[in-house]
Design a protein around this nucleic acid. Structure first.
Lengths: 226, 226
DNA sequence: ATTATAATCGCACATTTGTTCTATGTCAAT
DNA sequence: ATTGACATAGAACAAATGTGCGATTATAAT
């Protein structure tokens, strides 16, 4: 799916790339503005958000010069010579920028809005199949999901969907009494749903289907230790 | 080289290099400080001036993050020393190819030779950044490491080393009776070693140090579900 | 024509950030 | 003991910098 960028956003992208090549560090918002002939810093800010949303760049919120191109130079170069209107950069990059939405805790439903700022988790595309859309990342807080073999601090990558196949691992929101988010394998059994922990030593629970809200399918669990 | 840098200035240089590799843009003075354990911004400022005077870096005065390493060769060289086998090209790519050595099971020590076929696991460098050398990947077979929150089929990325810091997660080979490989947090206690499961609900075990052989430090756990 | 969405501008504002200044500590050479 | 260069903190500060908001225009969709 190739998408064409508005001319000025393309200019911004090119300016950043050139500036990087020339200086070794990224430009500030105002430098970009000057470079592409835009006086308003907020407009540049807007351009950057657009570019980040579409995966051309990724950036740290509110940090100066914290911009990076998501693709490597080869791709950036090739798109230059190729069709100038179509920039399939993000689609071809070997690294995937998954938006980081926040934290997942037992006591609350998972957030649906990106955090202010555009934090992302970088995943190499090779780890996924082609189906790399609709992904988002959450960080687990607390040890409440240990029966899913997920511990405090782990990162889970989810695909947003409200229905999963039998046996797939999902983040579910239990709306019965207190409300609770957990990671479980979901099995539909008539009007009940069986939630099975990933740890085979632990027992499943059953709840009425209407009290279970699937928030997304878990496609990856990532734990960094250092 | 001709002149050896004071330890901390060297550290600063290395931190900048690693940070650049990880983020694609240079760190701020305060980030450097935090990274090398210096509270005073003025001291970092001082270090940077030193490094600039001696030509290791160059920078724009009073501009945030406006640091660059003076030569690409140096950058490539430092990567070379970190991972002698990796080509400079690979060192700069945003994706890391970790060799896949085989399976890790409770009943056998981990393999040390790459499998015929050169399989690799692709990890985006942004997840590592620092110190990407000496890594290898194994796939977990069986549920014997569930107390480390690692289940059947999970992939673990390890750094090959025979000594770890207290509290770090490692793959250890227990040479006492039957012999067994497990993933545990390692604590040195005189001539005993305490092996602590990652799951805080589970109890540690203690074994004589001479019966414990560290096979590598666990730097990442990866679980794919689809 | 009407509405909605995207693009644009200007400005105020709260942070972030590099620098400077002062003070203190270290350590080798005098 | 004294000097002097080097190393380390901490605080204060001014400049740089990203963001938010309101207002305006342009473009596209219905």
């Amino acid at each position: 799916m190739t998408k064409s960028l508005p001319e000025r956003q393309q200019k911004v992208f090119e300016f950043i790339r050139d500036y990087l090549g020339e200086n070794g560090y990224p430009p500030t918002v105002r430098e970009i503005g000057k470079g592409v002939g835009v006086d308003s810093t907020s407009l540049v800010s807007y351009y950057l958000r657009r570019l980040a949303e579409q995966g051309y760049i990724s950036r740290e919120a509110a940090a100066s010069r914290a911009i990076r191109l998501t693709s490597d130079e080869e791709l950036a170069d090739s798109f230059m010579s190729a069709a100038p209107d179509a920039l399939p950069v993000a689609a071809l990059a070997d690294t995937l920028s998954v938006p980081f939405l926040g934290y997942i805790v037992a006591s609350a439903p998972i957030p649906v809005e990106p955090l202010p700022g555009n934090e992302t988790v970088e995943i190499s595309r090779a780890l996924f199949g082609r189906d790399a859309g609709n992904l988002f990342a959450l960080q687990v807080q607390g040890n409440s999901m240990i029966d899913a073999l997920v511990g405090d601090g782990d990162t889970v990558i989810l695909r947003h969907q409200e229905r999963v196949e039998n046996g797939e691992m999902a983040a579910v929101w239990l709306t019965n009494n207190a409300g609770e988010t957990t990671l479980k394998k979901v099995y539909y059994e008539n009007d009940m749903i069986r939630l099975q922990p990933a740890n085979p030593l632990m027992a499943p629970i059953r709840v009425p289907a209407r009290h279970v809200q699937v928030q997304g399918k878990v496609v990856m669990v990532l734990r960094r230790l250092d």
